[in-house]
Design a protein around this nucleic acid. Structure first.
Lengths: 134, 134
DNA sequence: TTAATAATAGTAATTGTTATCAATATTGTG
DNA sequence: CACAATATTGATAACAATTACTATTATTAA
């Protein structure tokens, strides 16, 4: 279809994302890359983040209240959203709780289920600590 | 705190939501109410939807790609998002798959988990049917 | 090298949502 | 009822996040 060409900027964005685990927003990626490469454009960051998602090289997370976050880790795993500081962290959940029930769920649903996500919301460690000392 | 006063518009919004099961966006609620009450303002719809969420009378759903959806049903249940037509439908999942594992999950996580949601994504019945006839 | 075209920087436009504000509606009290 | 206090409204401006546009630049295959 659309023959893809190499782009230095796309590499920078991918690498920047791989080097951090805070699940940044597009704006945060832009700010980080701009320190070394001040000429990069915000539009380029958005465009390439979308492309990388489309290419399956990164993951896009939608969070209640707030812009999208991006994750270099495309393996299925779980996220926790702090409603106070809006930090996004990975969670250890063990084996997938939904997967074993999926056949039963699919059998009584007439659409085609392609994927599902579970997100956890609450207050993160740091905000809890900050709250107890006032 | 903030003493609440009756508002005809808020009632209309609540009733409109209760009368449909398509999990409409704010814009959709606005359009529906405007047919009978053309003087209502979009800002009023947004303001009251937020208030109703805050009051726990309705639920706000965040969906990947697209504006927020609203649901009169505040009981915990599951949703399916069609990536093609963006319809949102309720799902039958049976007992909560995550709940039983929650103590184990919480025990190895240092933040406070307050709630969690699971959403399903794919292609709905109607879009599947439309696709097979071309 | 050169022709074809994907990608860019910079900026304008769009979308979804919130804030502002003067006018109006609701409500508790005399 | 009259009226003061104030929550709510409609209208519109402002805002934040994201996408679209465009002339220029970079990549790539022949």
């Amino acid at each position: 279809m659309t023959a893809r060409k190499y782009s230095r900027q796309r590499e920078l964005i991918k690498q920047s994302l791989q080097g951090r685990k805070d699940h940044p927003t597009a704006e945060m990626v832009y700010a980080a890359i701009r320190e070394e490469h001040p000429q990069i454009s915000l539009g380029t960051v958005y465009r390439n983040l979308s492309l990388l998602v489309e290419m399956g090289e990164i993951q896009k997370l939608s969070i209640e209240d707030g812009p999208y976050r991006f994750d270099w880790n495309t393996e299925p795993h779980y996220h926790f959203f702090c409603r106070q500081c809006h930090a996004v962290t990975d969670m250890e959940v063990g084996e997938d709780p939904v997967q074993e029930k999926l056949p039963a769920i699919q059998s009584c649903f007439s659409g085609r289920i392609e994927r599902y996500t579970t997100e956890f919301y609450g207050i993160c460690k740091n905000c809890l600590k900050a709250a107890e000392s006032y």
